[in-house]
């Protein structure tokens, strides 16, 4: 089912554009140029975070942490290697992407741990960063319950990631 979704969506978007008389080629090229500048914007953060995270993994600290937290998380359906990802996620998007892709590489993209890591990445956001951006923009001094509510949502996303993979992907 999901195999059909993306190609169908893509074709649909293009056909609709064609029907509305959009210069498809020009629009694609222009949008892709925007995508390139997004890549350029995120690359420095990815490089810094991935280097730091790779060093941390090489030191054995991440494995140790996962080992100690595994008895807590595994009954909840969250594989040990995914825990460092959950801990880093609210602070750093590129850090979480780095840890997540390392988990996917090591455990394999079709393993349970690899799938849970992918679902975690797809279903949560960098809460601290998002709150910082919005409150700085508005000049809010007190975000009151925004942070605890956002962290509740993150926690729900992580717990549900394990459950959803078990329920929907066997």
């Amino acid at each position: 089912m999901t195999d059909y979704l993306v190609p169908a969506l893509m074709t649909g978007i293009l056909l609709y554009g064609l029907a509305r008389g959009v210069d498809l080629y020009d629009a694609m090229v222009c949008g892709i140029r925007g995508g390139l500048s997004t890549c350029a914007q995120i690359f420095p953060a990815i490089l810094v975070m991935l280097t730091a995270v790779t060093m941390l993994r090489a030191s054995g600290a991440v494995d140790l942490l996962a080992h100690f937290l595994a008895p807590l998380s595994e009954p909840l359906g969250i594989p040990g290697p995914c825990l460092p990802l959950a801990l880093l996620r609210p602070f750093s998007g590129s850090g979480a992407l780095s840890v997540g892709s390392a988990v996917i590489a090591e455990a394999g993209p079709d393993s349970t741990a690899g799938r849970v890591a992918a679902v975690m990445l797809g279903s949560s956001e960098t809460s601290f960063y998002t709150i910082a951006v919005y409150s700085a923009f508005l000049g809010l001094k007190n975000t009151r319950y925004a942070l605890p509510a956002a962290l509740c949502a993150d926690l729900a996303a992580f717990l549900m990631s394990g459950l959803a993979v078990r329920l929907l992907m066997g």
């Binding site: 893509m10 978007i13 293009l14 609709y16 554009g17 029907a19 509305r20 959009v22 210069d23 498809l24 629009a27 694609m28 090229v29 222009c30 949008g31 892709i32 925007g34 995508g35």
Partner: peptide, 9 residues
């Protein structure tokens, strides 16, 4: 790119 097409259409 596809998002740009969606915007323009």
């Amino acid at each position: 790119g596809l998002m740009e097409v969606m915007d323009r259409s």
